[in-house]
Amino acid sequence: MTGSRILVLGGAHVDRRGRIAGETAPGASNPGTWFVEAGGGAFNAARNLARLGHRVRLVSPRGGDADGDIVTAAAEAAGVEDTPFVFLDRATPSYTAIIERDGNLVVALADMELYRLFSPRRLQQRAMREAMAEADIILTDANLPAETLAAIARAATSSRLPLAGIAISPAKVVRFRENLSTLAFLFMNEAEARTLTGASPEDPADWPKALREAGLSAGVVTRGGRGVVAFDGTGAALVVPPDIPALGDVTGAGDSLASGFLSAWARGAGIGEALRHGVAAAAITVRSPLAVAEEMSEEALAGALFLVPKAEILS
C-alpha cells in the first residue's frame, strides 16, 4: 500500500545509554555496558515510518561533529530524506541515560541547547516552504522551542495539514500547550498527560475527558502494561499490550508506538485499529536492543499484530 509523505521536524541527536549489569546500587559504581546510537523522539519516529513504507523527510539542527555524522548515517540507513540545518561550530545535541538491568530508566541528561536555534524564521526559508507544500502529514516533537511549535502549528493549519506531536517529557510537553487544539494527535505517557491536565485518573476512560478539558482534541496516552488509551472526535479506545518475553530496552518504545499508530491512521484506519498497530510497533521495539529496531517493517508489523488484542471501545 502506498505510503504518505511525512515531514518530520524535531529532535535528531545521539543517544548514549549505559545499562547496569546487576542490581542497581545508587551512589556507587555499577558494572555494565555502554551503547551509542542515533536517537531523538522525532528521528526515532521518522526512521520507523520510513521502514513502514512512508516517504519521510527530516529537518533538524545538527552540529558539524562526529555525532552529527552518526545521525546522518542512521538517516541514510533507514531511508529517510535528511535535510538538516548544520552549524559547523556547534555540537550535535545528545541524550545520556542510565538504564537498569530490566530496561527501566534510572536517570538521564539531555544536552539539547542547539534545538533553540530552530527558530520560527527557519520556516520562512524556501526549502522549508517547499517541504511543507509536498507533505501529507507533519510530525514534530517538544524538543523544539514553544514559539517554533506555535509557528509550525500555524503553518500546518494554513496548509490544512494534519499535525501530530510527541511530548518527549513532562518538562517539555508544556511547549505544546498553546497549540493543543490544532494537533491531529499528541503522543504522551501518563506523566506528560498529567502535566497538561493536573489530573491522574485511575480509570483509563477518564483520560480523554481530562485531556479534552485541557484543550486537546485527540491524543494517545501510554500507561505501561496497564494499556494505551487513544481518543479523537469520534470516540476512545483502549489496548492492553501483550506480555513481552524478552525485554530489550524501553528506549524508543513510545516513539515506535507513535509511528505504528500514525502509519495506520494515515492509511485510513480508525483509532482502535491504529492503536493496535502502535502497540504492535512498540512490541517490536522493546524486543530489540536498539531504540529503532532494524527489523521494523510492514511485514514484521503484520506479524506482531497477531499478538495484540482487539481494541476495547471506551464509553
Rank of each mutant, 00 (worst) to 15 (best):
T2M: 09
R5K: 08
V8A: 10
H13V: 10
H13Q: 13
V14G: 12
R16N: 13
P26I: 14
N30M: 09
T33V: 10
F35S: 08
E37D: 09
E37F: 03
G39D: 01
G41Y: 00
A45Y: 01
N48W: 06
L58D: 02
L58N: 03
P61D: 02
A66M: 11
D67Y: 13
I70P: 05
T72W: 00
A75F: 01
A77P: 08
A78P: 03
G79H: 04
F87C: 08
T96H: 12
A97P: 08
M112W: 03
R121F: 06
A131Y: 05
D141I: 04
D141W: 00
P145C: 05
P145I: 04
E147S: 10
T157V: 12
T157P: 09
A164G: 00
I166P: 03
S169I: 12
A171R: 15
V173D: 05
E178M: 12
E178G: 14
N179K: 03
S181T: 15
M188A: 13
E190K: 13
A191G: 14
E192T: 10
R194Q: 14
G198D: 12
P208L: 14
E213Q: 15
E213Y: 13
L216A: 09
R223Y: 08
G225Y: 04
R226E: 11
V229C: 02
V229D: 02
L238A: 06
V240N: 09
I244E: 01
L247Y: 05
V250E: 01
W265A: 15
G268S: 00
A269Y: 07
L275N: 08
R276S: 08
G278K: 06
S288T: 05
L290N: 12
A293M: 10
A293P: 10
S297Y: 14
F306W: 14
V308Y: 13
S315M: 07
